[in-house]
Write a protein that binds this DNA or RNA. Structure first.
Lengths: 245, 245
DNA sequence: CGTGAGGTTGAAGGTTCTCAAGCTTTGTGG
DNA sequence: CCACAAAGCTTGAGAACCTTCAACCTCACG
C-alpha cells in the first residue's frame, strides 16, 4: 500500500479524483515525508507557514493552558490532513504532536498553490475540511453537555467510525496508541475518572481498552448509551456531484 | 450608517476592499434582508442551500440534544456572517436562531458565485472564517478545562473584544439581549449556577449584567481572573497583505 | 390586576476532582 | 538475565464544584 493511499481514500469520499490529481497527491506525500516519535510538529504561536498530512500513525491538535493542563482539540488519524486555511493567519492557534511513531508529510504555501491548479481536488479538500469543522462542533457538545460515561463512549464511537471509513479497523477493534491521561485531556476528565469510567464501560460489556487497543463488544449498545449519532461525520452523504453546487 | 457597514468593517480587517467590492456587499446585504424576532433561521438537518449575514442584532448557532438540552456553539454579532463552506455538504449540522429583533441577509450559492468573482474579497471572507474557527477551538478549551467562574469571565471578555472591534461597545459596557439560561446553554452550566457565578463576579467588582447589558468594571482584573488571552481573536494581526501568501 | 418570563435563594445530593498510595508493565543498563 | 527505574494503571477516601428541586421574588405587559 502506497503511503498516500489513506489520504487519497479520505479525499476520494468528496470528489472523484483523476489520474493527474492522484499523481499530485503522491508527489506531495513523498516530497517532505518524515518519521516522528512522540514529537511536536508545530507549536501554538509558530508562524503559519506549513500544514500537515498524517500518512501513518496518529497525531493530535491541542492547546496548553497557563497551569500546564492540556486540552486536545482533535485527532488526525492516518490519512487525515490539516485545513489549508491554517496558512491564512500569521500564527497558528494550537499545537500538533504525534503519538508513538508516525509518518507525516509537510505541506507549504507552495504545495497549496499546486493543489490550487486542480479545482476539483481543492473542492474535495474543502469539503473534507468542512467535515472536520462539523466534528469540532460536536466536540463542544461532548465536553459541554455529556457525562463522563457518555463522553468516553461517544469518543470511541466517533473514532471507530472514522477509522472504519478508511479500513483501519479489524472487526470491532482498532489500535489506539493513547494513555488514559491522553483520553482525559481529550474529554476534560481526570485520569482517575477516565480509569473508573473505562471500568464501568467494561463492566457493562460495552468495550475494553487494553494494550493500546479498543475492542467494542456491543456497538449498538455503546451508541445508544452515549447518544452517538454519526450524521455529523457525513459518512453516508450522497456521492460527490449529486448535491448542491 | 448603512445596514452593511458592520459586515464591511469586519471583512475590511482582513483585506483592503475596493469600490466594486463594497458595492457587491451593499447589494447582497440589501437583496434578501429580513427582520426576525426570536426566530429560527435554519435547523439542523435542513438542506444547506443558504447561509447568513447578521446585519443587526445577535444570533447564535446551537445544537439540541435528545433530552431537549441545548448547547450554543457560537454567536453571530452584528456584522458577523456564516462560513460559506456551510454550502459544501448536503445538510447543515446545527441550527441558528436570533435573540430579540435582528436584521439578517440570506445568501445562497448564487451570492457565493458573485463573491467568487472577487478573489480579494473571498480571501477576506476565508480569513475571517479562519478566525471563527479559532474561536470555536477556544470554546472547547473553555467548556472543557475552565471553572464556571473562569468560563463566564472568559466569555464576557471575548464578547467585549469582538464587539469593541467593530465599535459596538460604549466604554466598558455593551448590550447583550440574552437570559441567564442562554448563558448556561453557552457555557454548559445550569441557570442557577450562572446566577450565582454572576453574583460572585459582581461581588468581586469585576462585572455586572443587568437589563440585558454587560458592564465591565475591571477589565484587567476580569482578564486575569478568567485567563483570557485575546490572541486567538486575531484582532492585532498585521495589516492585510503583510503576511504569508 | 393577573400572568408569565426571568431572576434569586436555600438545601440536598451527585458527579467528578484531588491527593495519596500501591500495583503492573515496559524499558534499560549492568 | 536480572535489577531497577519510569511510566502508566488501579484503588480508596475526602472534598469541591456544580446540579437538581423547589420556592419565592420581581418586573414587564396585557
Amino acid at each position: 500500500m502506497s503511503t498516500v493511499t489513506l489520504w487519497t481514500r479520505r479525499l476520494a469520499r468528496h470528489a472523484t479524483l483523476d489520474h493527474e490529481e492522484h499523481r499530485l497527491l503522491e508527489q506531495l506525500g513523498a516530497e517532505k515525508c518524515q518519521r516522528f516519535e512522540d514529537d511536536e510538529l508545530i507549536k501554538e504561536g509558530d508562524p503559519a507557514d506549513r500544514f500537515f498530512v498524517v500518512l501513518a500513525g496518529i497525531a493530535c491538535r491541542y492547546k496548553l493552558l497557563a497551569d500546564g493542563r492540556r486540552q486536545i482539540l482533535g485527532y488526525l488519524f492516518a490519512g487525515d490532513m490539516c485545513d489549508p486555511r491554517e496558512l491564512l493567519l500569521p500564527q497558528v492557534d494550537s499545537s500538533i504532536c504525534v503519538f508513538g511513531v508516525a509518518e507525516v508529510a509537510t505541506l507549504t504555501a507552495e504545495s497549496l498553490q499546486l493543489l490550487g491548479r486542480h479545482p476539483n481536488l481543492m473542492r474535495a479538500i474543502e469539503r473534507y475540511a468542512r467535515v472536520q469543522q462539523s466534528i469540532g462542533r460536536e466536540w463542544i457538545v461532548n465536553v459541554g453537555h455529556r457525562t463522563a460515561f457518555e463522553r468516553l463512549g461517544h469518543l470511541v464511537c466517533e473514532m471507530y467510525s472514522r477509522l472504519d471509513a478508511v479500513g483501519l479497523t479489524q472487526g470491532f477493534t482498532f489500535d489506539l496508541p493513547l494513555t488514559q491521561a491522553d483520553l482525559g485531556d481529550t474529554l476534560a476528565l481526570s485520569t482517575v475518572h477516565v480509569n473508573r469510567t473505562l471500568m464501568e464501560l467494561r463492566r457493562l460489556g460495552l468495550l475494553t481498552f487494553q494494550n493500546h487497543r479498543i475492542e467494542i463488544h456491543d456497538f449498538p449498545g455503546l451508541r445508544s448509551a452515549s447518544g452517538f449519532d454519526p450524521t455529523y461525520l457525513h459518512l453516508a452523504d450522497p456521492e460527490p456531484g449529486t448535491f448542491g453546487e
